[in-house]
Amino acid sequence: MSSRILPQFALLTPQSISEAVDMLAQYQGQVSVLAGGTDLLVWNYIRKVKPTYVLRLSALDDLDYMNYIPGEGLRIGARAKVAQLLEQPEVAGKFPALYESALTFATPQIRNMATVMGNVLRASPAGDCSCAILALGGQVVLQGPDGQRLVDIDDFWISYGVTARKNDELAVELRIPEPTSITRSAFYRLTRVHEDLAKLNVAVRFEMCQNGCRSARISMGCVGPTPLRLKQTEKLLEGVPVTDELLQQVAAAARKEIAPIADQRSTEEYRRQVSGVILTRVIERAAGTHRIAI
């Protein structure tokens, strides 16, 4: 419910990352970090969170970067916008899943405000960049009073809206590993209308070799409390040729591995049904064998 009453909080504007971390440590648990604000400043959200302090990142322009480092991968600063994923020259070619997640993300206005980090830190099961990053693999760099630590994206989301970040830590960077020449990835989402949160999103990443794929990673959103890795399903893909029969098995396995619910955006039945369909299409597209344009 919208309201005319502005939430009351004190605004903190640290001038450096270390000052930010000091402030987080000082006001443990009472601070909300403000990046693009496209989640935090939505009425329902901020009125639920009720932060005493809002710590904005507006002075920390050194976190604006999105760098591709050959041999290492993609480094995304905490202030880098979703729109930058579309502008950074290497993203489309080397991290197609991430690129595609940005392509359908909201509207240009939102993409210009929203950060990739904010998407991950929001820990919503519907986050599009989150879904892509979970498939691509990677790490969240957290900076706390005792320095930096890296948390694997697989371990980052604890439950709905909850992450492994500690109260006194600032998330400063996302790292996505360098793909090899045979790495493939793709992302797709279903929505009610174009501008919407996903009713289902899917991303895959695997290495294509002659007799199938290796080290597949499948992630799916809106089918559980956080974006999910479908580890059982991934196993089916390992080292065998991608055939129609295999894809049918993969689809069936995915339907079993997820735990969707019914909400405003879709039904449980529908999500379960289409999860397999979309997954197989995304795999085919990543593998370059797709017959149905998505």
């Binding site: 919208s2 509207t107 209308v193 174009h194 501008e195």
Partner: peptide, 16 residues
């Protein structure tokens, strides 16, 4: 009412 705003009442947008 379960969808009393544009968050969950979906109108066609320009792209649709």
């Amino acid at each position: 009412c379960r969808n009393n705003s544009f968050t969950d009442y979906k109108l066609f947008g320009p792209v649709d």
